[in-house]
Design a protein around this nucleic acid. Structure first.
Lengths: 208, 208
DNA sequence: CAAGTCAGTGAGCGCTTGCTTAGTGTGTTT
DNA sequence: AAACACACTAAGCAAGCGCTCACTGACTTG
């Protein structure tokens, strides 16, 4: 069975025992930022939802913007690590692309709130913070291009322009977080398999 | 040659002569809402960018929310009309899907600011306004499903689940407005052709 | 010309915002 | 026991917000 993990959970590997104040604040911010957006969220609401007084947020985070930055940074770093880990067990380009697309898609469904914040709220970051997350995102992109090019070089993918395939991979996966709902008609794992199949069709992989 | 139309232009068929005050306000709001988001945009900035005093917006629009609603409503109505017009000249399911995906994609590139507002800012609408735009969007979705199902029925598309194909069509086209820049490596028309090819590959249309 | 219409203005109101500051209670160190 | 460290709170400040309102000048109508 797949691991069930709360989308608003702040830590990747939840430690036992009650969540810390910092964790509760990050969880509350995840819910509020993804629901109403960064600008429409009030610092009072974050603290209150975390079960604290309105000013308690500033004990743990220097500003509302920094709280957003921690959320976006974690989300992007986790996405990069997931992509690199997903392809690692395989050598066949088809297996590697399949694993990449599948895991990347699953992540954007299962963690759709965190993904929304990373995709749609990062424009509210300070310029230097925005640059940090842009660097991580570029690395994700580079990893995807590498996998597609690898398959082209080995002659198993047939597509005129690898950039086009990467565009499609990213759009199919990232766009999940725009419309996904846990009550929808597909589970995250189903969406992962669906997108992996679609991408291999696009790449004209043999048998697809 | 394709018609060049300013992305922030308020009217679909620009009338000759200088733009009206209402048009200038809609254009300013398009730029500001798409750049900084609805909540981060100040009514003073909209009026000032339109060349008027801070309170002048309220002569033409009852509220900031209503200004957003006009923008989102127009954008969605135009998208629906475009989809229906795009398929009309053709009878072959392949031609119809190709035209649908191509025009829908071109629109999300050429009018990426308006598309961003329609996709990402509609959560700030009042519930009744949100329902109006949801209805139009559903009609776009229904039209896409009809075209794919038509091709399946005629035996030219080979895909297990038509819902999956429509999901992919929507994601590939809509997601353009998230990352598109006029300075990027693809023109709107190129993106339209690219996405049409990708979708026909996904559908296993003969020859793709 | 008098009256009415209407786009646009300047001042500002009531409220909320992110954030600060002084202080409190609890547990730990010396 | 004195001193300190720490998470947290109550109160509130300066700034900015959406929006209102009394008013103005230009144009239209009778």
């Amino acid at each position: 069975m797949t691991e069930l993990r709360d989308d608003v959970s702040a830590t990747e590997e939840p430690s036992p025992g009650p969540p810390t104040s910092e964790e509760r604040l990050l969880r509350a911010a995840t819910t509020l930022f993804s629901d109403k957006g960064f600008e429409a969220t009030r610092t009072r609401d974050i603290s209150t939802m975390a079960g604290m007084s309105p000013s308690a947020m500033y004990v743990h985070f220097p500003s509302k913007e920094d709280l957003l930055f921690q959320l976006v940074r974690r989300s992007n770093e986790r996405a990069l690590a997931l992509v690199l880990e997903a392809v690692a067990p395989f050598t066949d380009p088809i297996d590697r692309v399949r694993a990449l697309v599948r895991e990347f898609s699953i992540m954007h469904a299962r963690n759709f709130r965190r993904a929304r914040i990373a995709q749609y709220e990062s424009r509210h970051l300070d310029p230097e913070h925005r640059e940090v997350v842009a660097e991580t995102r570029l690395q994700i992109r580079v990893a995807a291009i590498r996998e597609v090019q690898n398959g082209i070089d080995q002659g198993v993918f047939l597509i005129p322009d690898p950039r086009v395939a990467v565009l499609a991979i990213m759009s199919l996966a990232v766009d999940i977080c725009r419309w996904y709902s846990p009550d929808g008609e597909f589970t995250p794992e189903e969406l992962g398999d669906i997108n992996a199949d679609l991408v291999l069709r696009i790449l004209h992989a043999p048998g697809y």
